[in-house]
Design a protein around this nucleic acid. Sequence first.
DNA 1: CGCTTAGTTGAGTTCGTTCAACGACTGTGG
DNA 2: CCACAGTCGTTGAACGAACTCAACTAAGCG
Lengths: 250, 250
Amino acid sequence: MTTSRRIHSFKTPCELCPLRPLPHFREFTREELEFVARFKRGELAVDAGSTILVEGAHSAHLFTVLAGWGFRYKMLEDGRRQILNYIMPGDLIGLQGTIVGEMQHSVEALSPVSLCVFERDRLMTLYNKHPSLAFDITWIAAREERILDEHLLSIGRRTALERAAYLIAFLFERGRQLELFNGRKFIPITQQHIADTLGLSIVHTNKTLKKLNERGLIRWQERGCEVLNGEELKVISGWEGLGEGKRPFI
Amino acid sequence: MTTSRRIHSFKTPCELCPLRPLPHFREFTREELEFVARFKRGELAVDAGSTILVEGAHSAHLFTVLAGWGFRYKMLEDGRRQILNYIMPGDLIGLQGTIVGEMQHSVEALSPVSLCVFERDRLMTLYNKHPSLAFDITWIAAREERILDEHLLSIGRRTALERAAYLIAFLFERGRQLELFNGRKFIPITQQHIADTLGLSIVHTNKTLKKLNERGLIRWQERGCEVLNGEELKVISGWEGLGEGKRPFI
DNA sequence: CGCTTAGTTGAGTTCGTTCAACGACTGTGG
DNA sequence: CCACAGTCGTTGAACGAACTCAACTAAGCG
């Protein structure tokens, strides 16, 4: 594993944030934007495969993903790993660490990832001075909760084929909302990641994905998944989607 | 299913809240207490087995559990049910509905439950006037998230026996923190609830619980689970517990 | 008293696992 | 340039965990 991280004091100015103009995100008032610009302390860039946060650590920082894909996971002592959720542009990470004191899960990059860095000590200032942004943070936490609910339903009660279809449809829909696909609908994960998300073995995951492949819904190539028919994946899994409303991000 | 609900305009005054003196909860300032007292609109009492919130509904209310046990769940169209988490005194329910607009899961009572009722419209006032309480709400959401992470790890990667041990240890620890057991360590759930939480069939759940019973860790009786050895359940599941710090509640 | 719900148990089946081997590809060092 | 190791994906065979089906007990309730 190549673990390289570069911290730039160079900042993408929040006024020129590449995410904010997307129709997927809610607009900010000038005051909110100015506050967030001051709240931001720098940027962090990590390579694919590197660890962004480690379980047990006391990080002084909060991050918002600017670009790239990653995932949150927990491990048991004997090495069994469970991927909890995926992180993508606009997602806030490290909030749990800020609130509980110590990280309860780890975060790893799937692709090169760049992050906005915030200081957790200043979070209380945000709550004091910008109730609307405070509400946004709660909104973000509630959204994560909702997604975890869906994942639980999936792992607990769906069949292997339904689970796989759900997961790929989910990642695809998120990527679509964020306008991450330029032509090629490609999700940068390995089958091991799929297995560790769905609670299946790698072998059975492979055989399950083969079925989706045979139905012409996905194609596996270059260490990732190309989505050919996102709608049918939703039908198979019985998943209703994330909803189309705008969402906030810090 | 007997579904009875009584809404009392009668209120347990927040100053005499039976929960607040518990060492498990953080103390409030006088101002916070006064605000919450005005925020509270009444009380709701429901019988065991009745539904408190339904998926898809637009509830105008938020609730804090005052007494009793319940659970949150989601269902697939064909009836498969997944229990997401359990609700107990001090828990806030309905926040997702407030934030996303419509409930994404249902909530049902396991025992007689009484709830404090709040109006979701007034939540923004709380954010504007009481940043510390706003932070508490985020805290509560982040805590729920953390618990869901643990459940995901459990369902995804633990064996049936470990899962059962984890769940019972979890419910037991929560009950203990809330001082719900007076001598008899009894959890009011059926084996069907256990099955629907762990993602197992009722038959296999029964056989798994039998093993825990044979080891002298639990005893099943009167539609519930009596915990005989909570520590050993934690050891079997490899679960580290919830942490002992104080927590907020509204 | 019959009806319902919760829990128990056995038998046979299915789904998902582990083990094992192999091909394709990538990066590294000689 | 080739040899080598490492990762990722693929496939077959054997096994085991968890499932369904089915029958039955015990308790609670009208």
